[in-house]
Computed example of a mutant assay.
Amino acid sequence: LGIAEIGGQPVAAQFWTVEGGTAFIHKLAHDERFRKQSPGTLLSAAMFEHVIDRDGVSLVDFGTGNDPYKRDWMEEVRTRWRVRAWRKGAVRHWPQMVRAMIRAMGKHKLQPLVSPNRDG
């Protein structure tokens, strides 16, 4: 947990955890009234220094989402995939399976079968 203060008043906070050589950033917050002082950026720099130099991490994971501030700190984006599996013989899985199939059918209808030719 990192907390940045100005004049004894908390102005930014961040919650990170470290596991298996990776620092995971869970929550970032700052007080908009102090935006010009960049407390969130300064706190991030201090947190990076701590987890790299003291905790010895080799990776910092910002989690999901494409928030603009993440591009300021990260060198690459990693795609995350989710795999869902159901047993079709298990009646309790049927509602989830039906919803997933309906979503898949809806997405498939919205996508063009052939990419438009831009050359004419």
Score class of each variant (00 low, 15 high):
31 D>N: 13
47 M>A: 14
24 F>S: 06
19 E>V: 05
50 H>L: 04
11 V>G: 00
32 E>M: 04
85 A>L: 10
5 E>Y: 08
92 R>D: 13
62 F>A: 05
17 T>A: 13
46 A>E: 11
102 I>C: 10
72 D>M: 11
37 Q>W: 01
20 G>L: 09
82 R>T: 10
99 R>P: 00
80 R>P: 00
11 V>Q: 01
70 K>L: 03
64 T>A: 15
15 F>I: 07
64 T>L: 15
38 S>C: 10
36 K>R: 14
40 G>T: 05
66 N>Q: 09
84 R>M: 10
103 R>G: 05
68 P>Y: 04
42 L>G: 13
77 V>C: 06
91 V>Q: 12
83 V>C: 09
119 D>A: 12
61 D>Q: 02
5 E>K: 06
18 V>F: 01
55 D>R: 03
90 A>H: 12
22 T>H: 05
107 K>T: 03
8 G>M: 08
118 R>F: 03
25 I>V: 11
28 L>I: 14
120 G>I: 03
83 V>Y: 10
110 L>H: 09
92 R>M: 13
15 F>R: 06
49 E>I: 04
99 R>N: 11
73 W>K: 05
73 W>I: 03
49 E>H: 12
87 R>F: 11
34 F>I: 03
52 I>R: 09
26 H>Q: 11
1 L>P: 06
74 M>K: 10
62 F>H: 03
86 W>I: 03
109 K>F: 09
68 P>V: 05
32 E>T: 10
62 F>P: 00
113 L>H: 10
45 A>I: 11
3 I>L: 14
113 L>Q: 13
105 M>P: 02
7 G>S: 09
11 V>K: 05
35 R>A: 15
56 G>S: 10
35 R>M: 06
70 K>S: 04
66 N>P: 02
18 V>E: 07
9 Q>M: 06
110 L>W: 00
32 E>L: 08
64 T>H: 11
13 A>S: 14
78 R>E: 12
42 L>T: 08
